[in-house]
């Protein structure tokens, strides 16, 4: 699959699971894998802080 930002090739591991984060090796953009009709699609991964409460 190709990076929507730079068209670089993003490799999805064979044992990938839904929600897994993949990164474009060319531009470094991160994407979350989402299941779509038994195959994976990608959506931009949200940037989240590390403050997860008490």
């Amino acid at each position: 699959m190709n990076c929507p930002e730079c068209d670089g090739e993003i490799r999805v591991p064979d044992d990938a699971i839904e929600g897994e984060i993949v990164t474009c090796p060319d531009c470094g953009a991160s994407y979350e894998l989402v299941k779509s009709n038994d195959r994976f699609d990608i959506k931009p991964a949200q940037a989240v802080g590390e403050d997860w409460g008490e």
Binding site: D15, G19, E20, I21, E32, A45, Q46, V48, W52, G53
Partner: peptide, 20 residues
Amino acid sequence: KRLVIIDERGRRVAIDGGYT
């Protein structure tokens, strides 16, 4: 909405953000 964690395989996975 989402949290990015390291799963037991050492890979980054986004999960539901829960109630934080």
